[in-house]
Amino acid sequence: MADFIQQLVEGLGSGAIYASLALALVLIYQFTGIVNFAQGELAMFSTFIAWSFVQAGVPFWLALILTLAVSFLGGMAIERIVIRPVEGAPELTLVIVTLGLFILVNAAAGWIWSFLIKDFPSPFPESALHLGGVSLNYSTLGVLGVVAAVMGVLYALFRFTKIGLAMRAVASNPASARLSGVRVGRVLALGWGLAATVGAVSGVLVAPVLFLEPNMMGGVLVYAFAAATLGGFDSPLGAVVGGLVVGVAETLAGAYVGAIGSDLKIGVPLAIIIGVLLVRPQGLFGRAAVERA
């Protein structure tokens, strides 16, 4: 039993990381209707920036804050430069452009920082907290804490600020928002900036576990897709719940289903995506889309 709870907590820990990347995906999807395939790579790039700060002797938490600021500006810049020219284009074009961005960012990171695997410092103590037969790593608890804090800040931003209100207006109806005087273009850039920031958090959290290298986020992105599909691509709450469920499912399946083991764990998100699409395509918390021709 203790072992089971142990696995459960570890699943929640990795689930929290998937949740933050899924949240980044959902943020962009809500504002622009784009699924950003480059989200994981942007997070990886941010993590490399954080690594460079740390290498230069900046204390970890300051480096994190600087990285988040850079990511925010970078996300806005990408929206302006890469996405704005194809705004309103068919879905196919948008997917291909974000894929181009995926390849570009991945290779650029390899060019700048090389493809060698790097150690990334963990901000949390190595030791563990023992409760009953269960040992809770401080790093797992720290990850859960950070992701919860990010959710809290985002919720407060959307719920209680004027900018948040404007952003919600754009997400629900861009044309009406524009008519009421909301600067839609600026809000879209803001959405990309926020998403890049939230994604950067997931990258920094996952790097101590996976080691830092340009292809680090490929697997995480698949889990985040599964999380967003499960929760519904238009629901931030769904992304979080979906991420936690995917993390737990993956850990438990890897630990208890012999045929899956650690090498085939990537099949779990695949099964989740296909299962959700067959049974409830809009996801647990999503709204079913009705199309008008």
């Binding site: 699924v35 997917v95 698949v222 897709f225 090498d263 085939l264 099949g267 995506i273 296909i274 699409l277």
Partner: peptide, 24 residues
């Protein structure tokens, strides 16, 4: 399963399958 829905999901499913195939 993938095509009954929007093209986006097809991209997701096919990408995951290609990644899953290597360990398989």
């Amino acid at each position: 399963p993938a095509l009954r829905l929007r093209g986006l999901y097809l991209a997701l499913v096919t990408m995951t399958i290609a990644i899953f195939l290597v360990p398989l």
